[in-house]
Design a protein around this nucleic acid. Structure first.
Length: 377
DNA sequence: GATGCCGGGCG
DNA sequence: CGCCCGGCATC
């Protein structure tokens, strides 16, 4: 790999975005746990500050801005209060989203969260380090105004896919800090999780994984009679969307290109996905920023996954092994499928005539392993 | 295994 | 575009 370290960090960073502090705290009910988490975070910040002063500057900048608004001690908050803070902070972060770090479409302060999302859509930020994913606005197909439930244990679970059992808060946060442009630590309260159907011409957005799975099973897979049974195939046909109103980049990363073995990759299961004008990958390519063009390979693989997606009528077992294999195969360039390759020449070529030892006597084509120009058949 | 050469990377 | 090479098909 050309940039192994970079790639690793990028993946970790994305994981960290899946597990923002606030969500962790929201699901932690004991006060001591909350305090412990805060303490741990603080100590890690100090550790990191020793290591990387540049990032600390950015980090501190962010913290200054954010903490004055939402850095309330979580330990003293009841769950209801936390929810209120969530809403308040979401508004604050919405207005912060015009900061230099995250260049997002102008958002009027009095706009509702859904409103701004719908109107502006997601636009790739050319300045964001996490802007590898160019998330096209769902536009006409999705339903951004679908009411979003409060973050539930279910949605929390969805963040932690089976393939990342060990990606705990610690690692995620550490990587968050280690990344070049630290993500605001207090991006706590503006996160919504939706699940979008990726079936062609559907784009239905539901607020629960179970809901979208049922939708896919019944509507697209035609499993009406067994609507409660899941073999995991639906996972291929929907993706998780995190609507984060404080950062465009968050929207871009919401497609969760975290791990090749992710249970629900942003696949595009449609028979005509090959068609460039309808291909998701194509759309994203159009919007690619210079940064995204240098995206780590794993992200690129996901893109290719779209282009060569097999028909959804194929039964595919869900599982990391299958995913990995599919990536390996699909990431290789498409080869000429049928016998367009011209038959091998019969006559002797430079190689045979002059031998390897007289390579300098070969014709240039032979030297370049091209079709021989001297002894043409 | 040897050979021919396509596809693609690199400078 | 020149140069080179990986890898596949064929001998």
């Amino acid at each position: 790999m050309t940039f192994p370290a970079f790639q690793q960090e990028d993946v970790k960073t994305d994981i960290s975005q899946k597990l923002p502090d606030q969500q962790f705290l929201l699901f932690t009910t004991k006060e001591e746990d909350l305090k412990t988490a805060e303490t741990k975070k603080t100590s890690r910040v100090h550790e990191y500050e020793k290591e990387n002063t540049r990032s600390v500057c950015l980090l501190e900048q962010k913290r200054k801005v954010v903490s004055s608004n939402i850095d309330v001690p979580p330990a003293r908050k009841s769950p209801e209060e936390l929810d209120m803070d969530k809403v308040t902070a979401a508004m604050v972060l919405t207005s912060l989203s015009t900061s230099p770090l995250v260049r997002s479409p102008p958002i009027r302060p009095n706009e509702s969260l859904n409103g701004s999302w719908k109107e502006g859509g997601f636009v790739p930020s050319s300045t964001s380090s996490s802007g590898y994913w160019s998330w096209n606005a769902p536009s006409d197909q999705s339903n951004p105004s679908t009411p979003s439930p409060p973050l539930s244990a279910d949605s929390f679970k969805a963040f932690r896919t089976p393939s990342q059992p060990d990606d705990g808060i610690d690692e995620a946060e550490t990587s968050n800090l280690l990344f070049d442009e630290p993500i605001p630590r207090k991006r706590k309260n503006s996160m919504k999780v939706m699940f979008k159907c990726l079936w062609k011409n559907c784009g239905k957005v539901l607020s629960t994984a179970a809901g979208i799975q049922k939708h896919i099973r019944t509507i697209h897979l035609g499993r009406v009679g067994e609507s409660d049974y899941s073999d995991g195939e639906e996972d291929f046909y929907y993706t998780e969307i995190r609507l984060n109103t404080d950062s465009v980049a968050d929207g871009l990363s919401s497609l969760s290109p975290v791990s090749p073995s992710l249970a629900s990759p942003p696949s595009f299961p449609t028979q005509d996905a090959i068609r460039p004008e309808t291909s998701c990958a194509k759309t994203e390519t159009k919007l690619m920023t210079p940064l995204s063009r240098s995206a780590p390979t794993n992200l690129y693989l996901v893109h290719t996954d779209h282009a060569y997606q097999v028909s959804p009528t194929h039964n595919r077992p869900a599982g990391s092994g299958e995913q990995k294999q599919s990536h390996t195969v699909l990431s290789s360039p498409p080869r000429v499928a049928f016998g367009l390759r011209k038959p091998r020449g019969e006559g002797k070529k430079c190689r045979k005539v002059y031998g390897m030892e007289n390579r300098d006597m070969w014709c240039t084509a032979c030297r370049w392993k091209k079709a021989c120009q001297r002894f043409i058949d």
